[in-house]
Design a protein around this nucleic acid. Structure first.
Length: 153
DNA sequence: GCCAACGTTGGC
DNA sequence: GCCAACGTTGGC
């Protein structure tokens, strides 16, 4: 079992949207970065735990907890010419993009970036690294424990 | 294979 | 809106 941090713009898809979604989970579609795709396709397993992060918004930070509810399968939006995630080079026979399904666990208080940066135990988080833009990053078990038991109790 | 140009992310 | 950082593209 692994831990992850997944970013979403709340204007696009927030923790509240996830909470309202069907119990089986929501497709994490739209990832168009190879590293993030590979994490989903090659490493994520059902039951993996997720820090749900709100990005590109007035208060960026961790907003809730979620879990992987389906392993990776081809991202439907890559085949849809009307989607902004359409990819001309992707075919059903040879899909380029994949997504997992993610299921709501609970909302948390907003654990903002400035607060995260205050904790030495979290200094190694990929999220906090300079210039990090990856929308999906692995989280250390120790970091997960620190965040969920100490900060989000 | 190099690398400049361009596009995107995302905090501020 | 600005801009730093990074990824992708495409000419050579």
């Amino acid at each position: 079992m692994q831990y992850w941090l997944m970013k979403s713009e709340p204007d696009e898809f927030s923790i509240d949207d996830l909470a309202r979604a069907q119990r089986s989970g929501s497709a994490w579609f739209g990832v168009r970065n190879y590293q993030a795709r590979n994490f989903m396709r090659d490493q994520m397993q059902i039951g993996d735990q997720i820090l749900f992060y709100h990005s590109s918004c007035p208060e960026p930070g961790i907003a809730g907890l979620a879990e992987v509810s389906a392993e990776a399968y081809p991202d439907d939006t890559q085949f849809d010419p009307k989607s902004k995630y359409y990819d001309v080079k992707a075919t059903r026979a040879d899909p380029r993009w994949f997504n997992v399904d993610v299921r709501f666990i609970r909302k948390t208080r907003l654990l903002g970036l400035p607060e995260l940066r205050k904790h030495k135990a979290l200094a190694g988080m990929r999220l906090l690294a300079r210039g990090n833009r990856l929308s999906i990053t692995p989280v250390d078990p120790g970091e997960w424990k620190y965040i969920t038991t100490k900060l989000l109790k």
